[in-house]
Design a protein around this nucleic acid. Structure first.
Lengths: 205, 205
DNA sequence: ATACTCATTGACTGAAATGGTCAATAACTT
DNA sequence: AAGTTATTGACCATTTCAGTCAATGAGTAT
């Protein structure tokens, strides 16, 4: 059960099935028929609880972003002014949440990292907005004086962002399809730290 | 005319139309009906020159990779041992080719950068192979002693790769849909150099 | 028992789009 | 006139899709 406080059993089943279906196929290729088959309920139930496919998708995104945001906001330490340490903490928290549910992780990968097919309407925009909002806490109260004076800090931060995005994307690729049962969190943590240290050494004076 | 040496006029039309269709939609969403409509030829012509949709796609990829490879191989200077300068040269050459034809550029974006939908058979693998082969010349005869001794060079190179991939992806996003007519090559070149310099300053001793 | 409400079903709809075929024919060449 | 090559587009069979709705089951209140 990813999202609590859903009393209705069938709705719960649909939400769980939909999360997996969207995680595997993205919005456009995901099929409502497949969702209800997976959920083991009649087709009508989907349209009893949700107006249509689109609203179901929006519901999932909203809930998911809420879950992540809640965890990060609750656990992040804004007194830590070191950029890399802040980054490490953020990813740490997120990873712990994702590990609870691989479908959730893959769904978020679709929403965040992968191209959102051709999403209808303005959903694509609002995802982008929520994404950058989410990244906001990444830069709050960060000590930029630690960076070398002979480089353009803004460009450096951008490059670091891109590099770490690359690392995460590669991690997603590696983890795709696994159920996380044999995922060694400590091993990943160590590897991630090593990459962070390379960046730290290079970009700090 | 992107690929020369096609005498057959109709085949040429189909290839041009197909490049655009695939560039806009990727493999799965691209429609053969749409291609022939765009090409202004009868449906049968597509199946006169190509066995099926898949073979048409493979043909385009093969040709495209050939064009790029040819240009790079002909123009790259392997005596240049500086990694960043090598990278700059490579991207430079590629950009000049892409600027001749925006469809070609967008098609290659799909093949390389974006997720290849769920490509049939082993095509996805062979693209990956050609991609890494292509990157091969990026590391040939490179002077690694220029890198700082206090960092893991292999990890550093990987991070640089990810960062510059990020830059390129962002560039693709910015250029998407444009016809390149108002694309200021020198402006882009300058910007790219600035990012390269940040990396150079940070990772070289 | 009766009536009423909420939950649930799945066969069905109509539309769209798909890749691919093929008999017919036009356009050239010999 | 015969033969070859290029070209057409109506047509096919199939799939898939989001969404509907009359029917019914389950539970509760009267």
């Amino acid at each position: 059960m990813i999202f609590e406080n859903i009393k209705e059993e069938s709705k719960q089943k649909i939400v769980t099935a939909a999360l997996r279906e969207f995680a595997e196929n993205g919005y456009n290729r995901a099929s409502t028929n497949s969702i209800v088959k997976r959920a083991g309920v009649g087709k009508g139930m989907l349209y009893y609880y949700f107006k249509n496919k689109y609203e179901l998708y929006v519901y999932l995104i909203t809930q998911s972003l809420g879950v992540i945001e809640e965890h990060v906001n609750k656990q992040i330490n804004l007194d830590e002014t070191d950029f890399f340490e802040r980054y490490r903490q953020t990813v740490d928290i997120e990873m712990k949440v994702y590990m609870e549910n691989a479908d959730f992780f893959n769904f978020m990968s679709y929403v965040f990292v992968m191209e959102n097919d051709h999403l209808p309407n303005d959903l694509s925009d609002s995802i982008e907005q929520l994404k950058t909002e989410g990244f906001g806490s990444l830069y709050k109260n960060i000590d930029l004086t630690k960076f070398r004076d002979d480089i353009d800090v803004e460009k450096a931060l951008q490059l670091i962002q891109w590099a770490l995005d690359g690392y995460q994307q590669q991690l997603i690729e590696r983890l795709k399809g696994t159920d996380f049962s044999n995922f060694e969190f400590e091993v990943y943590q160590k590897e991630f730290m090593e990459y962070l240290n390379v960046l730290k050494t290079s970009f700090y004076h």
